[in-house]
Every structure is written in C-alpha cells, then in structure tokens.
Amino acid sequence: MVETMLTAVSGVFLLAGGLFGIMGGIGPLRFPDFYTRLHAAGITDTLCAFLIIVGLVIQAGLALVSIKLMLILVFMVFTAPTASHALARAGMAAGDDPGTLEGEPAPVAPLDSSGEPSSNS
C-alpha cells in the first residue's frame, strides 16, 4: 500500500518536472530579449531539476544513490544563481541594455531586434 503510494507520488513529481522542463524550453524561444530568456532558463535550473531529483530519490529510498542525487541538487542550487548572474553581468558588460531603470515598463521588443554584441570589447 505504502509502496504503491510512493510510486504514484514519485511518478507525479517526475512528470511535473518534465512538464516544467518543456516550459523552460518554450520560454527562451518565445521571450523577446536576452534578459527575459535568462528568466525562462531559470525554470529548468530550479523547479524542474528539483522535482525530477526528488522523484528519483523517492524511488531509490534510503541508499547511497539518494545521497548522491541530493548532492547533485545541492550543487545545482548553489551554482545556478551564480551562472545566471555571470550571464547577466556579461550581457551588461557587452553593452546589451537591460531596459529602463526605475521607470515605465520597457517596451517589449520584437523577436530578433538585439543585434550582435561588439566583438572588440
């Protein structure tokens, strides 16, 4: 009985993780500029990874694999914001304008408006 319930719960977690993963794939395709795409990529780093790894941990139970899976999750949670921040900073350093500061919402640019960054920076 408990076995069946755990299987069902981990199945729900895994499928929900896959669904959020696809959202994180659609987002970067449809969002207008580089900074907004960064947010969509953040979905795959956080909730998608969390749900799939927790689903696998529930299936594995108390084993060495579970410890390693949790370690993967910890590494991802600590490195994902650093990578996002480095990407945002690199974009800013290359002169990609993130929008208006403290003002009106920036107008949503058409899909292919941001050009190549200057390569001699």
Partner: peptide, 29 residues
C-alpha cells in the same frame, strides 16, 4: 524559499505560454 520558487515558477511558465500579454520586463532598484 522553495515555496516562493514554486509560486514564481508557475507564474513564469504561464508567461512562457502567453508572452505578449504577461511579459513586462523592467529594472528595479
């Protein structure tokens, strides 16, 4: 923090499906 992440994930996923209606990017201080 996990609960906050879950909530904002659902918001951003909704925005991924209807980007024109929901996306309002801006920089805050």
């Amino acid at each position: 923090l996990l609960w906050e992440i879950v909530k904002s994930n659902i918001e951003v996923s909704r925005a991924a499906l209807w980007p024109g209606k929901l996306v309002r990017p801006r920089v805050l201080k």
